[in-house]
Design a protein around this nucleic acid. Sequence first.
DNA 1: GCAATACATGACCAACTTGGTAAGGATTCT
DNA 2: AGAATCCTTACCAAGTTGGTCATGTATTGC
Lengths: 145, 145
Amino acid sequence: MRLSARTEYAAIAAVELARRGDAGGPVGMKTICDAQRVPPRFLVHILLQLKRAGIVASVRGAGGGYRLARPAAAITLRDIREAVEGATERPAPLTADLAGASRAATALLAAWDGAARAEAEALARVTLADLAARSREPGQAMYYI
Amino acid sequence: MRLSARTEYAAIAAVELARRGDAGGPVGMKTICDAQRVPPRFLVHILLQLKRAGIVASVRGAGGGYRLARPAAAITLRDIREAVEGATERPAPLTADLAGASRAATALLAAWDGAARAEAEALARVTLADLAARSREPGQAMYYI
DNA sequence: GCAATACATGACCAACTTGGTAAGGATTCT
DNA sequence: AGAATCCTTACCAAGTTGGTCATGTATTGC
């Protein structure tokens, strides 16, 4: 799985919003950037995409900022990835001339799609609430590469 | 899951080789291209990658061509994708400054990695032998998008 | 030996994507 | 009014992708 910087930043920001919750009013971009070392000029665009996808909501003006548009338990990593990368869930067939599409190509396409589905389902099982909770657990085992 | 043209072509070519089997000697590039509508000049490079990865073997000279280097049942789509796209299996963390890596980032990384693993395992379950057999089944249900 | 066949290799290129910056506009609070 | 903060569009450098081209090298058949 290839992970773009946009997607990673989007997830980091969303988890940060989930961690802060609704109390304390909306969270400013600056706060997120400071906490997570994300280039602010870039995060603007990403948050905008999340907003258009209905994942976050914004409050303009002084004292404004962002909050999650839905409960953290109702937002998954899959939602976030789709919001940022577009719903390119399913691998498009190169061999689009359907008449000549060999059965081999058909079988292949089904296989690619199965893998894409497996990945998407794995992402759909992780909610922002999970991640926020996990990020608060003390003494958690470090994740090593 | 994003699927590059290289990967798709590589898989198509590999399945074609599996379909033809070892009888009849090596299969020429031209044969593959004609059967599957792949630009020949491009396929050269892809087959070379597959060769370097030990997935196909080549025979040079007149009457030469390609064949699978291993039994079709021992080659999976995962092998092919890794051969072509490089073993970029695991999403690299942007927040590589480990000391400051928040627990949130750590939890996220584990989640991304889980999804990548799920996808890779799904691909590893599909062998070229499966695909070749499936491509020979008559009256198979068409795969619609 | 020679020509034809067919893989091998590296250079090159246009188009697109990615990651990020810049600047000005709109909205709200004080 | 003025400061804070989000919104929008435009722009840009660098890398990746999807190919093409030219040329080299190995093998077979005559």
